[in-house]
């Protein structure tokens, strides 16, 4: 059986899942809705010289944790697409708690080495992300707070995915810790991409409509540029497609998009250097992750007829 299918089957076969239709439906849905970075444990296992199948318990746990995180995120963001609109907020919150519990159980009941350590890492992911979510929901408005939220909210998921895969692959704790740091940096890259996608979406997504401040919007709000007053005016009218398009154009001309791209390029370079310093039997799977993460930026530079800067 393919690794991801096997990982989901483990969740479906748990006695509590069998007894709880909503939990089973959530796990069943994960078959066709793979979470982002679901394969990070596999990539890490391969990078440390183990078989990809060794990472199966970590794939189960990470997928389960992702479902829980999204349930909570949708509740906090009042996202109209959230499952809480079907189940009600209370039951959705309860389902998230169940999924967190299940994610820990699949690790503790697995036969991977260091499974208690792995469960501890997953607990830390849950704790740190919850802190980041709580910080984020208060809509921080400073640069310092933005980066603190990104590190707390996004980095642990990606770092833990690689860390768990390394443990599944019987890597040394030192290598696992280095992969965790690499994954955390990757998480910051992901958050910047996520913010760019949200800000450039049309029609306006919840970030615009709820007055939130993803990175490009924060830049256009904080920096003293000639179009700032106009941007403030348009931001409150983002439900109007014409106002949204003008506001998005100001994100471009004010340098907000350039700033985000610069932050992506700097982190990509840092991640390349970090990867080169880790003594991995096979760094290529991780290098491919980085290539995929920088590809949209390279595509943009090509589109505007510019050179890709800062080549390592």
């Amino acid at each position: 059986m393919e690794i991801y299918a096997s990982a989901i089957q483990t969740l479906l076969d748990h006695p509590q899942t069998l007894a709880w239709p909503e939990l089973a439906r959530a796990c069943e849905r994960a078959r066709s809705h793979r979470p982002i970075a679901w394969d990070f444990p596999i990539v890490a296992a391969e990078a440390v010289g183990a078989s990809p199948e060794a990472a199966t318990p970590a794939v189960s746990a990470l997928t389960c944790a992702h479902m829980a995180l999204i349930l909570v995120d949708d509740l906090l963001d009042e996202d109209p697409r959230g499952l809480h609109h079907q189940l009600g907020s209370g039951r959705a919150a309860n389902l998230a708690t169940a999924l967190f519990g299940l994610s820990l159980i699949v690790l503790l009941q697995s036969n991977i080495p260091q499974r208690e350590r792995a469960a501890g890492a997953l607990s830390d992911l849950i704790l740190r992300t919850a802190y980041g979510q709580d910080f984020d929901v208060q809509n921080p408005q400073t640069e310092q707070a933005y980066w603190a939220v990104a590190k707390a909210k996004s980095s642990p998921y990606f770092g833990t995915g690689l860390y768990l895969g390394a443990l599944c692959g019987s890597a040394s704790l030192e290598i696992a810790a280095q992969l965790n740091k690499f994954g955390e940096l990757f998480g910051e890259i992901m958050q910047i991409h996520d913010d760019l996608n949200d800000c450039l979406a049309s029609p306006a997504n919840v970030d615009w409509l709820q007055g939130r401040s993803p990175l490009p919007i924060l830049f256009a709000l904080r920096v003293a540029h000639p179009q700032r007053a106009r941007f403030l005016e348009l931001r409150s009218q983002a439900a109007n497609p014409a106002a949204l398009a003008e506001a998005q154009s100001i994100l471009v001309s004010s340098g907000a998009i350039s700033y985000c791209v610069n932050e992506l390029v700097l982190r990509h370079r840092q991640a390349e250097q970090m990867l080169a310093s880790i003594g991995l039997p096979d760094p290529l799977p991780l290098a491919r992750l980085l290539e995929e993460a920088i590809a949209p930026v390279q595509h943009l530079f090509t589109k505007v007829g510019a050179d890709f800067p800062f080549s390592a």
Binding site: H33, I70, L71, L83, I189, D194, A295, T302
Partner: peptide, 13 residues
């Protein structure tokens, strides 16, 4: 600029 949009985003449940 829309060329920078990607599938690199937190998935939504």
């Amino acid at each position: 600029i829309l060329a920078v949009r990607s599938e690199l985003a937190w998935d939504v449940w």
